[in-house]
Nucleic acid binder design. Structure first.
Lengths: 226, 226
DNA sequence: CGCGCGTTTGAGCATGCTCAACATGAGTGG
DNA sequence: CCACTCATGTTGAGCATGCTCAAACGCGCG
């Protein structure tokens, strides 16, 4: 892994993301001070459970998955972060080791923000504190929602849910491209790849057509009823 | 539900909790200004999914469970908050409705903190912001951990894990009392009550003795291996 | 003592996992 | 452009875990 400084393009991605968007320019600059960039191949591990973390990570491009392991070596995804998302913040602020592993799932560009500095800024800049609180709330909600879904929904229902979450509000029919391999989607939904495949089959009768990464929905109503 | 002002006893519980403990006294007082108290029977619902929330809730005594429902009416616990915990903060800060239901599981005393005021204080008082960030990080970690456990561990493993989490570090044998009904523990662990019962049976051979709410562990090692 | 709730036990069943075979697709080099 | 190859996705069969439903048990309380 080689590390370098931010290009102006990288800066643009960072500043345009959800976290930085609501920060006044000087505060954003302060957060970015001392940040570095690294490139990673697909499958590269960014850190392991237990590793000491003193950076907050930002996905400039690509995709990162956060996952835990059982003692038999099995893996379970906790979250999947697309371009523009921030992670590792909880370990930094609680000042404890990572509670999970992180792995690039596609070739990815990752920015590392100076953790201690960010902590300081949370104290000094109310705007930074506010942005961080919002980020943590959003992440917390997502995780809670996923936990509830895991416990309440069957495989086809989870997939239907995911599809609906990708859909522009109100259109009765639509289509979109999966932003990653089905592999990854299966992990994100807490399913074995085979189960995802079968779920798509089951949804075919409700008007879902899958061709490669292209998903087409004929009847939104049917999906919601599922 | 009848509402009243805080007694000095209530204040003491609040100020001694994790969230308030690290706040300077004046900041803590500011957060408590305008707070109210309510008593609830077991089974009382505090709010439903979708309800507008403009208070942050604090468990002064008792126990509250947060849960989601599927369309068939089934329920799944998202979190269980004992005395001293704070919840509802994410809905308040994101300014959206509750994403889950909340129900008292034991007779409980609940404090309601003024949400908008807390928002303002996060801006104005760095100490409040810091305390909130830490709270959100802790909650986020817990939820992520639970999500991973759900996906990685079998029922007996989850129960073994819970027992170990209740155990003072380092003692090879110990015992403790469940702080709530097995019913509730089952929900917290994402199990049907029957599954919890059977899990306890399975753990008997590893030196776990259960008598009512009293749990006795003979061989800590055996549990960790499970 | 008897009622009621919480817990336990049992039997059958459904969901999703495992493992293995097969199909498809993308990328590479002749 | 085709043949080959490797990775990815699909399908099938069997199995394990945990849920459902029902009945028995035990404890606390009137």
């Amino acid at each position: 892994m080689k590390t370098s400084r931010l290009t102006s393009k990288d800066r643009a991605v960072l500043l345009g993301s959800r976290f930085f968007a609501n920060l006044p320019a000087p505060a954003a600059e302060a957060v970015l001070e001392g940040a570095s960039i690294s490139r990673h191949e697909a499958q590269d591990v960014l850190f392991h459970q237990g590793d000491a973390i003193d950076h907050v990570f930002f996905v400039v491009s690509g995709l990162v998955r956060l996952y835990g392991t059982g003692k038999d070596g099995h893996e379970a995804d906790i979250a999947v972060f697309p371009k523009g998302e921030l992670f590792g913040e909880k370990a930094v602020f609680l000042d404890q080791g990572a509670t999970a592993h992180a792995q690039a799932v596609q070739p990815s560009i990752i920015a590392r923000l100076d953790g201690p500095k960010l902590c300081r800024l949370v104290h000094e800049e109310a705007a930074v504190a506010r942005a961080l609180v919002l980020l943590l709330c959003r992440h917390g909600q997502m995780t809670e929602t996923r936990l509830a879904e895991d416990r309440l929904l069957t495989a086809p229902q989870r997939v239907a849910n995911y599809i609906l979450s990708q859909c522009p509000n109100g259109s009765p029919a639509f289509s979109f491209r999966l932003p990653f391999q089905k592999n990854v989607l299966a992990g994100k939904l807490g399913l074995a790849p085979e189960a995802l495949s079968r779920a798509f089959s089951a949804l075919r009768q409700s008007g879902v057509v899958v061709k490669g990464r292209l998903i087409e929905i004929r009847d939104r109503e049917a999906l919601e009823r599922f």
